[in-house]
Simulated scan of single mutants.
Amino acid sequence: MPIITVKMLEGRTDEQKEQMIKKMTDVMVETTGARAEAVSIVIEEMNKANYGVAGKRLS
């Protein structure tokens, strides 16, 4: 039962997330032979205020 966790900044549309879930599931099925029904995708969205790069917050 593959579980994929995606951490990304918030702001994507529901349609973008649906496309990402579909494509990631397809890749897992193609590369591992897992059944699509067994693949789980978890999206963890982060607020820009809670994320920093090179010593600076993104917000």
Rank of each mutant, 00 (worst) to 15 (best):
T31L: 14
K56A: 05
T25K: 00
V29C: 05
S40C: 08
T25M: 02
E37L: 06
P2N: 07
E18F: 09
G11S: 03
M20I: 09
A34T: 14
N50M: 07
L58P: 10
R12H: 10
K22Q: 13
M28W: 00
G55A: 01
L58E: 08
V6F: 04
I21S: 07
E45M: 00
A34P: 07
S59W: 07
K56W: 04
E10H: 00
E37Y: 03
E15D: 15
G11T: 01
K48N: 10
I43Q: 06
A49H: 13
E15L: 08
Q16T: 01
E44K: 09
K17R: 05
A34G: 10
I21R: 08
R57N: 14
L9H: 02
Y51S: 06
T13L: 00
E30A: 07
K48F: 10
I21T: 11
P2C: 09
I41K: 05
G52P: 07
A38L: 10
M28L: 01
V6P: 01
R12Y: 05
I3T: 13
Q19P: 09
K22V: 10
T5E: 11
A54H: 05
V6T: 02
N47G: 11
T5F: 07
K17L: 04
D26Y: 02
K17V: 01
T25R: 04
R57I: 09
S40G: 09
R35G: 11
N47T: 12
N47L: 12
N50Q: 11
T32A: 06
K48L: 13
D26K: 05
R57P: 07
T5R: 13
V27D: 11
K56D: 07
A34I: 11
V42Q: 10
N50A: 08
I43R: 05
E10W: 02
M20N: 01
I4D: 02
R57V: 14
N50P: 02
D14G: 11
K17A: 02
M24V: 15
K23E: 13
A36H: 09
Q16C: 03
K48R: 15
D26A: 10
V42A: 11
V27N: 11
A49K: 13
R35F: 07
R57E: 12
N47D: 14
E45Y: 01
V29I: 06
R57F: 15
T13E: 00
V53I: 12
E10S: 04
A49F: 09
G52L: 08
E18T: 14
D14A: 12
K56Q: 12
V39W: 02
Q19R: 13
I21L: 06
L58T: 12
S40R: 14
S59Q: 09
E10G: 04
K23N: 14
K48D: 11
Y51R: 06
L9N: 00
R57M: 12
V42T: 12
N47I: 08
